[in-house]
Design a protein around this nucleic acid. Structure first.
Lengths: 133, 133
DNA sequence: CCTTGACCCTCCCCTTACTGGAACCCCCAT
DNA sequence: ATGGGGGTTCCAGTAAGGGGAGGGTCAAGG
């Protein structure tokens, strides 16, 4: 069950480039064949799958590093995992709020804009210093 | 009414560094005093205010460049502005959707997690290949 | 045995939108 | 003259990879 980078890429959904990058920054340490090809074992595959999912859920690489350490530590406290997750959830909420505020402002301006050949444009007015609400 | 970079920074809310960067990439072109200090005029101030607001609404620098060109073009069609805005609104919506999906998944896992001293952790299980919904 | 195409390798620069820092100049008040 | 608070340039770094050059390797087919 020794896999090349291409195989791992297919199974994890990560690109080969990404996997090499993860090795560079020390998240995985595959073995090497005599021809310098990376050789991934079961455990490497598990880690990379884990990383793929954690990244897809928006965790930073740094969070991933910590989560992975907890994942591998049989004596972890689930509280530690939950804390990282809660912090991340709060960041997600903050981002959603920001985006919703932007969306509200912009869609308001956009609705006012005729969107035709004429130059008058409430969007540009809103973006300029012109501060009437 | 000639302003130094610090004055402009205070009035626009942009940091001096950011303003220099905007000059670097050609978004503004302040004059120069004999001592090499940048000299900003009214129009520069307007442009930078515009940029500050557009950035705060999440437009990319590239969008800003286009919007600024339209802002300065008295013969623009408001349709062009609206198109950039609509595209941006769609991107915002997509991001919000992504974030909400992440949030849903993560908060579900988080709720299942005891968050105590014990190692059992549904969050880690969810992140590993363990694919039971 | 040789070639072809699909893999794999390393190394380096590019991206976004800035931010930080070093090393230096300028002006005014003490 | 010295101190502080402006200003200037340039260099390096961030997150998380992406793109591409230039080259080695492997397995199958002719």
């Amino acid at each position: 069950m020794n896999l090349n980078i291409g195989d791992v890429s297919k199974r994890t959904g990560l690109r080969a480039k990404t996997i090499r990058y993860y090795e560079d920054i020390g998240l995985v340490t595959p073995l090497r064949d005599t021809n310098d090809y990376r050789v991934f074992r079961e455990t490497d595959l598990h880690k990379l799958t884990f990383l793929s999912r954690a990244r897809a859920l928006g965790f930073t690489i740094d969070d991933c590093r910590n989560l992975l350490a907890l994942y591998e530590d049989e004596t972890r406290a689930s509280a530690d995992v939950k804390e990282i997750t809660s912090k991340h959830l709060k960041e997600i909420e903050a981002k959603i709020n920001d985006l919703q505020a932007m969306h509200a402002t912009l869609s308001h301006l956009s609705k006012e804009c005729a969107g035709d050949h004429r130059p008058d444009c409430p969007i540009l007015e809103g973006l300029s210093g012109d501060d009437r609400r």
